[in-house]
């Protein structure tokens, strides 16, 4: 059985399982109007085909393929599907122990980078939140319509710039003899230029910056939905501003905070272009390591295994945090 067959069969299994779950979960109401009668044949057909294609062809199948691939050996094309193409845990063993055979010492080089990436992504998500929240609050509750339009434009237009151009311009901006160091030295804040790139500061700044909008919009939506009278009522009852934010606005905006933070964390931990361009010599971002599995070692199964480990870890963290915050997955999609 070759890789593609497995993929097709696994995909079919996932889809069938999904339909069973739906069927089992929902009791059929006698008065329910049929899906096609409600939407018409054309729209109904489009919805099913479109969503079906999107889910199956672009999401489930590639993922299943990658999962399957990660349990294989790296083989030349001629040997794929042959007798040597057997299932193996080697790639995961590589990640943990740095060797296909020995389990004596842990693969600290990769593990450290893996945990650092996740830890720093969490910290950067919190920083991005701290930067975005005041802006989102201002936009949602204080700004007049005119100011809001201007602010939104000012926020959106910089995002027309693509990732790679932004990353390289940050490199120039924050280089040793770059613009920022020039200013800092010019006003006498530092004598020596600061090594923004080598210390990964440029990387962190760029990662925060690239995910600001992704944080601001869900926050803005959530805060905007709050009745301003509630904020005034809290103030009238004697609450200082921080109390209002902590206990009135943030609890209300919790789904928005959850959705912004989740997206921001996932995208930060999974960013590739920015760490490739801005990571200093000591950068231990995990994604470039994954990237190297694919394009330096040409070991796609190993790359798949590394990427899947990262994905699973991120999903686990997101679910844990959501659970701790008392949020359901459905709520953050509001």
């Amino acid at each position: 059985m070759n890789n593609l067959d497995t993929t097709f069969i696994a995909t079919a299994l996932v889809v069938v399982l999904f339909f069973f779950l739906v069927r089992y979960d929902r009791q059929r109401r006698p008065e329910a109007i049929g899906f096609f009668r409600r939407n018409g044949a054309v729209v109904g057909g489009y919805l099913i085909l479109g969503v079906g294609f999107w889910l199956i062809m672009t999401f489930i199948m590639p993922m299943v393929f990658m999962v399957d691939l990660s349990f294989h050996h790296k083989l030349p094309p001629s040997k794929v599907g042959g007798p040597e193409d057997v299932y193996t845990l080697d790639n995961y063993r590589m990640f943990l122990f740095g060797s296909r055979t020995s389990t004596e010492s842990l693969n600290w080089l990769h593990l450290r980078s893996f945990f650092a990436t996740i830890g720093i992504s969490m910290a950067l998500t919190l920083i991005t939140f701290a930067i975005s929240y005041p802006l989102a609050y201002y936009m949602a509750q204080s700004a007049k319509a005119q100011q809001l339009r201007v602010l939104l434009l000012l926020l959106i237009i910089p995002y027309w710039v693509n990732d790679i151009l932004r990353a390289f311009s940050f490199r120039i901006l924050m280089a040793e003899n770059g613009f920022l160091n020039g200013i800092l030295q010019g006003i006498g804040l530092t004598g020596q230029p600061i090594d923004f790139l080598g210390q990964n500061i440029a990387l962190y700044v760029a990662l925060c910056y690239s995910h600001l909008l992704i944080m601001i919009f869900p926050l803005y939506n959530a805060i905007d939905a709050q009745d301003h009278n509630q904020i005034e009522a809290a103030r009238d009852l004697g609450a200082p501003w921080w109390h209002i934010h902590l206990f009135i606005v943030m609890p209300h905006a919790k789904p928005g905070i959850g959705s912004g933070m989740t997206l921001c964390f996932m995208l930060t931990a999974g960013a590739v272009a920015t760490p490739l361009v801005l990571g200093g010599p000591n950068s231990l971002w995990f994604t470039p390591i994954v990237y190297d599995r694919f394009y330096q070692l040409f070991d796609w199964p190993q790359g798949a295994a590394y990427a899947i480990v990262l994905l699973l870890a991120c999903i686990a963290i997101v679910f844990t945090v959501l659970k701790l915050a008392g949020l359901k997955l459905g709520e953050i999609a509001k």
């Binding site: 009745d227 009278n229 509630q230 005034e232 009522a233 809290a234 103030r235 009238d236 009852l237 004697g238 609450a239 200082p240 009135i248």
Partner: peptide, 16 residues
């Protein structure tokens, strides 16, 4: 308003 000895009941009540 947080320092005044007044309390306001809003038209829409603004309960939390």
């Amino acid at each position: 308003p947080n320092k005044r000895p007044t309390a306001l009941i809003f038209q829409n009540l603004a309960l939390f």
